[in-house]
Amino acid sequence: MADGRTADRQLTVVLDGYSYLECPRWHDGRLWVSDFYTEQVVSTDTRGDVRVEAEIPRQPSGLGFLPDGRPLLVSMRDHRLLVRDAGGTLTEHADLSGAVSGVLNDMLVDERGRAFVGNFGFDLMGGEPLRDTTLTRVDPDGTVTTVASDLAFPNGMVLLPGGVLVVAETFGGRLTAFDVTDDGDLVGRRVWAGFGEPPRTTDVGEAVAALEVAPDGICADAEGAVWVADALHARVLRVREGGEVVEEIPTGTGVFACMLGGDDGRTLFLCAAPSFAEHERRPVREAQLLAVRVDVPHAGLP
């Protein structure tokens, strides 16, 4: 975008040979990430050690950690959240089937163990028309509550210090903010950053062509800015509230999620692949986890 400074930063490859990586999370010195079409959640110390943390046959996506450290894992296609115990066994934490209209997507788990979960809302890969959808909260006891509606493909989320939840609306071309109440409700909805006019069409192809930025995965830094993976334009953007783009890092390949981590919180990890279409990604192993050093460290959740 014209108002952002294009940064000349060196990208390095951390992981290679995966199908489609999403939802990176830095946790206890390791980067965790879901690989959609190998149906695995893996983690790495970023120095060569890689572990398979879970196998999720109905496709993993969002990741998070409960206050006691147990991983919480999205199983996309059967609309479930799974929890992994210390021995590695997966059990059902919640079933969202009655609350969502599409496959589950990204997730943010807050410091109380409440999970905020997005869903596609329509069959993106099957060619259905665009349709707005909801955001769901799952409480630590497994209770499922719809907390927001009329969202245009809710995707990555961050919880900023002070209790502001920012949600990337991919097909809305914007970041939308809510205040999180003590009870976990979402109030005070507003546009945190907008990137041009939202597409006024239900045709996915027309919407893709119209989007100036397609915000996918996001993460926050200690200056209150948000890094945005632009799913359509092979770049990540550092954005301030109000929509000012203060830095752009071209990636040379599609980038669909980002997370600040590393020992000092200044390594920006990027989930990269040539495209997002399932029929193109499933049969090949072209996805990579990239890394680039940035100036301001991580803050907020995840």
Results as ranks from 00 to 15, higher is better:
T136D: 10
R137K: 10
D45E: 09
A2T: 14
P57S: 02
F269K: 01
A2D: 15
E280P: 13
V158W: 14
L90Q: 06
G188V: 07
L159T: 04
A177H: 07
G172T: 09
D110L: 00
G48Y: 10
E278G: 00
V42P: 13
L11N: 09
F116R: 08
E169Y: 04
R137M: 15
T91F: 08
A257G: 12
F153R: 08
I56R: 06
L90G: 06
V42N: 09
G142Y: 05
L81W: 12
V50Q: 11
R190V: 13
V83Q: 04
A193I: 00
T46S: 12
G142H: 06
D49S: 14
V239I: 02
P161G: 04
D295E: 14
L96V: 06
V245D: 01
P57I: 01
H93D: 02
D85Y: 06
F65C: 04
T38W: 13
D95G: 03
V100S: 00
G121F: 12
V158S: 11
P302E: 11
P161Q: 05
V296C: 00
V144M: 10
T181K: 01
G29D: 07
G48V: 04
A220R: 01
T133G: 00
W26H: 05
P140K: 09
H93T: 00
R84T: 02
A225E: 11
E111W: 00
E55Q: 14
E53I: 08
V138K: 03
E244Y: 04
T143H: 15
V13W: 15
M157F: 03
F36H: 15
G142K: 06
A148K: 11
C23F: 13
I218K: 04
D182W: 00
T251M: 11
V50H: 11
F256Y: 15
R9S: 10
D295N: 02
T91K: 10
L270S: 02
E278W: 14
D141V: 05
E278T: 15
D141H: 08
L73I: 03
P297T: 03
P24W: 09
A115N: 14
L72A: 01
G261S: 08
V158H: 12
